[in-house]
Amino acid sequence: MVENRPFLAVLTHLVLLAGVVIVAFPVYIALVAATHGPTALTSGAMPLLPGGELFANVMQVLTENRRGVAPFWLMAWNSLWMAVIITLGKIAISIISAFAIVYFRFPGRVLAFWLIFITLMLPVEVRIIPTFKVVADLGLLNSYAGLTIPLIASATATFLFRQFFMTIPDELMEAARVDGAGPLKFFRDILLPLSRTNIAALCVILFIYGWMQYLWPLLVTIDPNYYTLMMGVKRMAAVSDADPQWNIIMAAVLLAMLPPILIVVFMQRLFVKGLVETEK
């Protein structure tokens, strides 16, 4: 820093502490709610310090079957599957299409690139009904395939890999060719290992993306056995107007939001890299 004024240093920390408190506030309230019994939360004058019921509430979330939603563990399983399939699927189809676009010259190559680019401009939110119809016509409602495959096309991941491949020296591919590696061998032995960090960073971002999906599962699942956590907690919250069990609902919400938060906290470096690079 250019100058060393104690006043500025104190102000900096005050601003940041205030920021951290504001950012953490809603989750703290949820945490407090999740740690009390049902009677503590019937009015706005709720306690401001955590109670001792967290474990009991969590156990109730995990074991109790609630009306209108699937069992918690099943929804968690569905969310996990959905996030994992989307992550791996996006990475797999993006890396091979980027490979084709960078390392081959073939008729239709530019067209393929633009078609992939166009997906950026067509978020599912703006084509809800026709996309739903396609999935219904293909018989994919209430299935993992229907939940995941339509979300797997990814222009951003393709661009990321394309950009990364362009930075790999041309000579590496030429050396591999002289060394007797064909395209697939080159891909497996050279390109894939070199892409490790990029793949890992994308995994973090895409897992979070997959875990967060809400509108799409809402559209294509009617059978509660395919509900995801995001849908489940929303439904639990919605019916609770009549029968408020806020301690249980907040415990469920905390459990549902925990996995991606843990990933961001413990893989912060990859997370930052993934977020910044996919936006280039």
Binding site: E171, E174, A175, A176, R177, V178, D179, G180, P193, R196
Partner: peptide, 28 residues
């Protein structure tokens, strides 16, 4: 190139960065 039985030394060496020296030598 692989069928011509030639070997090439590049200006920037083009060593496979993720492989050890031994693996680089063995690859071909």
């Amino acid at each position: 190139p692989a069928e011509r039985d030639i070997a090439m030394v590049f200006q920037n060496y083009a060593l496979y960065p993720h492989m050890s020296v031994r693996q680089n030598l063995e690859y071909g």
